[in-house]
Design a protein around this nucleic acid. Structure first.
Length: 562
DNA sequence: AACAAGTCCAACCGCGCGGAC
DNA sequence: GGTCCGCGCGGTTGGACTTGT
């Protein structure tokens, strides 16, 4: 509290004092010739305000100054009362339940602190806001998304159900916040998407969670206020290792939302960044492809979900208010119900959560987060760190590697590769997903050239063709690589059934293609199908180099179109 | 012990909304 | 319809406190 500074000159200033600037050195504004006091409240002022409210009730705050001799502006009085003096205020740190509720509410409402406070009896909007901002900072430092996927998904579900049922209008009940659940996405995003759709690659293997991660980061004011410094603040490894922390109330269950891969090339990332209005500090040198920029690429996955049209949101976006969850347009079906398969990140999470064969890591254990966010962060950072070590051990052990091991280590290695290998200055694509390919596949393991790498790189204007899995690309081979995933083990990257299409999970490339095409809509969908089937004549097609990531039974290689 | 960095939080400021005139 | 005013909200600031070096 800040009753300390002025406690000495405790009492309310007399009119003479107030009107004398020399007395009030804490600043203040003159209203009707009366200089109003600013700064911390004294206990005497509090007492006066309490007494006044007892007599006159809340409201008419500007009358306080007139009637009580309290030389505070009405605004200040209202704030003081609402945040500190009114009865039934709950003081102290937030409980675990409250923290979880805040996360959920924020996922639904965005920065609607007052609305959130209405759901947290005894808590003020200011408290919630401060808590959230603190949380934001921590998560930023940890390179984490704002929400656990569960929360994101739940909010999305509610949003869509409300939208589809037409409840979105006129609902003044306790679900009024749903009105704010339009999950509007800034026009700039869609404009950017529109502008870049030609260069955006459909990357269906990238999880919707990853997409949501991006979108979460782009949430509302957070987009401009917080998103900008996510990547650069923390060392890549640190971000990785901390990346499951700080989900209040979610402990170790937190699904990691690892960033996805840079499927852009050339100047695309910068375009996207500009289009998205993001302020990721991009490498000014366009030839080196800022590694950090891949965080932006998640935005491409927003589009790549096929759920974002290249136009404005089709539902709910009524105003430009930024919601917490920007993926309202994402197709729930793609990552489905709560029990639906979780994509890539689920795999990572599965590794983290599931007791590995060696039983080395178990992050699903209750986090000692009761002591606060920092504890949770530390705990889960340790967990991830342990997981990583475990993975390294496994990858260095060339014998008796089970598919599960491969999946686990691969999944984790994705992240490592992403974060740690993005600094590869040799990559002509600036650490696109192809870096992973080149580094993880036997090609690269045997010292593939850049040209060879290019065969799997996701160039625009390249067509995709599927080839049988190289028999040499076996788990054994993969074991030989250190800390790198095997692209030929799609399941190693992705949850085995990551894409839900309708009521079934898509594994058939044809079905996948159709599914994607349907999601993309007519034009883009057709384009995609052409590209995916290698029939496209467009030289500016999509870089669908993702079939291997799609859990398709083939490794996608890309050759340049004539 | 001293300093720096990080964290927390109360309070202020500007803006927008809605009602009264 | 336009203006004023009260009010609420969200963003930001600055100081106190804590933690790390």
């Amino acid at each position: 509290m800040s009753l300390t500074t002025n406690e000495s000159d405790d009492m309310v200033l007399s009119k003479d004092q107030i009107e004398s600037p020399s007395i009030d050195d804490s600043g203040g504004s003159a209203v009707r010739g009366v200089r109003l006091k600013k700064g911390p409240w004294t206990s005497a002022e509090d007492a006066i305000l309490i007494d006044y409210v007892k007599k006159h009730g809340e409201g008419n705050w500007n009358a306080v100054q007139k009637n009580s001799g309290l030389f505070r502006c009405g605004k200040s009085c209202r704030l003081r009362w609402a945040n500190h003096l009114r009865p039934n205020l709950k003081k102290g740190s937030f409980t675990q339940e409250e923290e979880q509720l805040i996360v959920e509410l924020h996922a639904k409402m965005g920065n609607k602190w007052a609305r959130m406070a209405a759901h947290l009896p005894g808590r003020t909007d200011n408290e919630i806001k401060n808590y959230w901002n603190t949380r934001i900072k921590r998560r930023q430092r940890a390179g984490l998304p704002l929400y656990p996927p569960e929360v994101s998904f739940q909010a999305l579900q509610e949003s869509q159900s409300q939208n589809t049922s037409g409840i979105n209008s006129g609902d003044k009940g306790h679900h009024d916040f749903l009105q704010a659940n339009s999950y509007e996405i800034p026009d700039v995003i869609f404009d950017g998407l529109k502008a870049n759709q030609g260069v955006l690659h459909y990357v269906p293997e990238l999880s919707d969670i990853a997409t949501s991660s991006m979108l979460n980061l782009m949430k509302g004011p957070v987009l401009s206020q917080y998103c900008s410094f996510m990547p650069p603040i923390v060392h890549r490894q640190k971000r990785l290792r901390e990346s499951t922390a700080l989900f209040p109330g979610y402990g170790g269950r937190v699904k990691n939302e690892f960033p996805s891969f840079d499927h852009f090339q050339n100047d695309t990332p910068d375009k996207i960044v500009r289009s998205f209005g993001l302020s990721f500090p991009l490498n000014p040198d366009p030839t080196t492809k800022n590694p950090e920029s891949f965080g932006v690429i998640q935005g491409s996955h927003t589009l790549s979900n096929g759920n974002f049209s290249t136009s404005k949101p089709t539902s709910g976006a009524v105003k430009l208010e930024l919601p917490s969850l920007q993926y309202a347009e994402t197709d729930l079906g793609s990552w489905g119900t709560s029990s639906s398969p979780q994509p890539l990140l689920e795999t990572v999470d599965a590794f983290i959560q599931s007791p590995p064969p060696t039983g080395a890591v178990e992050s699903d254990c209750p986090s000692p987060r009761n002591s606060g966010l920092l504890d949770a962060l530390l705990h889960e950072s340790k967990t991830l760190s342990s997981a990583k070590n475990h993975s390294s051990d496994k990858s260095s052990n060339s014998s008796s590697v089970t598919p599960a091991d491969i999946a686990d280590s691969s999944a984790l290695n994705i992240c490592e590769t992403e974060w740690e290998e993005y600094g590869d200055p040799l990559s002509p694509l600036g650490h696109s997903a192809t870096s992973l390919f080149s580094e993880c596949t036997p090609l690269s393991a045997s010292g593939s050239s850049l040209d060879e790498q290019a065969s799997v790189e996701l160039f625009i204007g390249c067509k995709v063709k599927s080839e049988p899995i190289d028999p040499a690309c076996t788990p054994d081979r993969e074991k030989g690589t250190t800390g790198l995933f095997d692209v030929n083990q799609p399941d190693a990257l992705l949850a085995s059934d990551w894409l839900e299409y309708g009521s079934s999970y898509v594994k058939d490339p044809t079905i996948m293609t159709d599914a994607i095409a349907s999601l993309l809509g007519d034009d883009l969908g057709n384009e995609y199908k052409h590209m995916a089937t290698g029939t496209s004549t467009s030289s500016q097609g999509w870089g669908f180099g993702s079939c291997a990531w799609n859990n398709m039974p083939a490794v996608c290689q890309i050759s340049e179109l004539p």
